[in-house]
């Protein structure tokens, strides 16, 4: 499996995309950014559907920037699935498998993996949103790409289906060792999937690297809604009510209580002992408390009164409490 690297520049009217980043062969890279930050444009450039004004794209060290889309070993799953309406589910997947340079995967195997074996003979017109997403993913995988790009594949899904789809993506990565770059602007999805992070704002990369580290950078936090300020924490460190299969959980600063002494007789399942590293007064009169814990750095938002009453200061021990159902 191969690393995808890009250093490109593309001007479209008033908008300039200038992105330089690397998506490693190991793990899933999340491409995060608000609407209009150029995420989809970047994907179309990587896939070869759009030519950058200058720059280069390499896959496993080999330049692919001059190849048209149909000669790149890069798969792309579009937000709107884009299944071929004149073909059945089976034929859609076979379309990709037939054109794979080293031979594609068997349609039946792919279908079983994505739990769509029962749909194979159906026309694609009357599939549900979730089914369409799965078929599009199956079709992209059947081509056996070296790298897979996904443009908000769960935009059309909600709740349980969304979580199920994320679990499928994690399975796909684990079983097929397929490196992926997944676009999302949902921080929970990003944390659940991402081992790496590339954050895009107005066409520029503002943060990138290991997910937990890069997501702590102020440039990344500033992309988030104030209520979403928080930190990624490995799912294994917490007891979550619905943490099945997720890589990490985004623990919002508003979800984390602090105690200056070890709490007793508490229903909350997650109590982490840590040490305060910094206090950040916010413009909305709250205070963000940054602490180190065995699970990594955490953020908690509390009132200035609480800071005074608990005598919180950098270096002091503190206990962070999270309710399992909030996760």
């Amino acid at each position: 499996m191969k690393t995808l690297e890009a250093d490109i520049e593309l001007k479209q009217g008033m908008f300039t995309l200038r992105a330089r980043f690397s998506a490693p062969a190991e793990g899933i890279t999340v491409l995060f950014g608000p609407s209009g930050s150029g995420k989809t444009t970047l994907l179309t450039v990587l896939a070869g559907l759009k030519r950058p004004d200058r720059g280069m794209v390499t896959l496993g060290g080999a330049p692919v920037g001059d190849l048209p889309a149909h000669r790149r070993d890069i798969g792309l799953v579009f937000q709107d699935a884009r299944l071929f309406p004149h073909l059945t589910v089976h034929q859609n997947i076979a379309y990709a498998a037939r054109r794979a340079p080293q031979g594609g995967l068997a349609v039946e195997d792919v279908a079983r993996f994505f739990d769509i074996a029962g749909l194979l003979d159906r026309p694609v017109g009357n599939l549900s949103g979730g089914e369409k997403s799965r078929v599009a993913l199956a079709r992209a995988l059947a081509m056996r790409p070296d790298f897979l790009l996904l443009d908000e594949p769960f935009a059309a899904l909600d709740g349980i289906r969304r979580r199920a789809f994320i679990a499928t993506l994690l399975d796909l990565h684990r079983v097929h060792k397929l490196p992926m770059l997944v676009v999302t602007h949902n921080i929970d999805d990003a944390a659940a999937l991402g081992s790496h992070l590339v954050a895009l704002q107005a066409g520029h990369v503002v943060a990138s690297g290991d997910f937990a580290t890069a997501s702590r950078q102020p440039a990344f936090q500033s992309l988030l809604d104030a209520r979403d300020t928080g930190a990624a924490i490995s799912a294994g460190m917490l007891q979550a009510a619905s943490g099945n299969g997720r890589g990490a959980i985004w623990l919002r600063a508003d979800q984390l209580l602090l105690a200056s002494e070890r709490p007793h007789g508490l229903s909350a399942r997650n109590v982490l002992e840590g040490q305060i590293t910094a206090l950040w007064p916010q413009s909305d009169q709250s205070v963000l408390v940054e602490l180190n814990s065995p699970a990594g750095a955490l953020l908690s938002r509390i009132t200035p009164q609480a800071v005074r009453e608990l005598a919180l200061a950098p270096g002091n021990p503190v206990w962070a409490i999270a309710k399992a159902h909030l996760l």
């Binding site: 559907l49 149909h70 890069i74 079709r139």
Partner: peptide, 27 residues
């Protein structure tokens, strides 16, 4: 016909002639 389908075919390794005969013409 939806132009986006040609992009979808291109990333599935269908060249221009292939796209014409497999997507444009049948649709």
């Amino acid at each position: 016909t939806d132009r986006n389908l040609f992009e979808a075919a291109a990333v599935l390794r269908a060249g221009p002639f292939d796209r014409f005969f497999s997507i444009a013409l049948p649709l």
